[in-house]
């Protein structure tokens, strides 16, 4: 079953074999959670959103045409869920939330390493929180989700050149915030 492509599986779901969505869930729920986590820095909210994304993919399975990649479709739905959530609840990231989370995550091997990594991580989260949604989104997609610029262009529905420009600006902004905070 693993040899089946995402698109082939999703097309089966579309044809009514709803159980196949379980395979896609196994393949992508962690990645999706990672994306939503960086966009909200809220674990429970991210988990709820993972649920919503999979529900929407089931509910609107007829809109999947198979002409594009499954994950691009998945990310566009995830972005819509984020947008809805933002509108409805006025989801504001609480200051310091990301920082606290950084503390909870596992670190390096030796105590020194752990401390060093924790500091780097805390600084980075603090800086990421200060970015605009657009900038945080593009960095999350390209760095944490390891997507190519061309894929990001399809997900965001903008040109590849626009992706490169935005990615550059986002990274520059992140660097400035990060360095200024260190001083």
């Amino acid at each position: 079953m693993n040899s089946l492509t995402d698109n082939a599986i999703m097309l089966r779901v579309k044809d009514g074999d709803l159980d196949k969505m379980g395979l896609l869930f196994e393949r992508y729920h962690r990645q999706l959670y990672g994306f939503l986590f960086h966009m909200t820095y809220h674990r429970e909210v991210s988990e709820d959103m993972v649920q919503q994304v999979f529900y929407k993919m089931l509910r609107y399975r007829q809109t999947f045409t198979g002409s594009g990649q499954f994950i691009h479709w998945m990310y566009s739905i995830a972005r819509n869920v984020l947008k809805d959530q933002g509108k409805r609840k006025q989801l504001q990231m609480q200051a310091g939330n990301a920082e606290q989370l950084a503390d909870q995550l596992p670190g390096g091997i030796t105590p020194e390493e752990q401390l060093e990594k924790k500091e780097a991580r805390t600084g980075l989260y603090r800086a990421m929180e200060k970015l605009s949604d657009d900038h945080r989104e593009i960095l999350t997609l390209s760095r944490f989700q390891e997507l190519k610029h061309q894929e990001i262009a399809q997900i965001l529905n903008i040109s590849e050149v626009a992706v490169k420009t935005r990615a550059h600006r986002a990274l520059r902004e992140l660097k400035n915030i990060y360095i200024n905070a260190e001083r």
């Binding site: 869930f25 729920h29 999979f54």
Partner: peptide, 25 residues
Amino acid sequence: IWDVMAEVKAPEPSANVRVKFQAML
């Protein structure tokens, strides 16, 4: 900073996610 980002991984979702997904399905 790009390299620092490599050190940062999002946490794993809890086991609840799978249970909830199955119930939803």
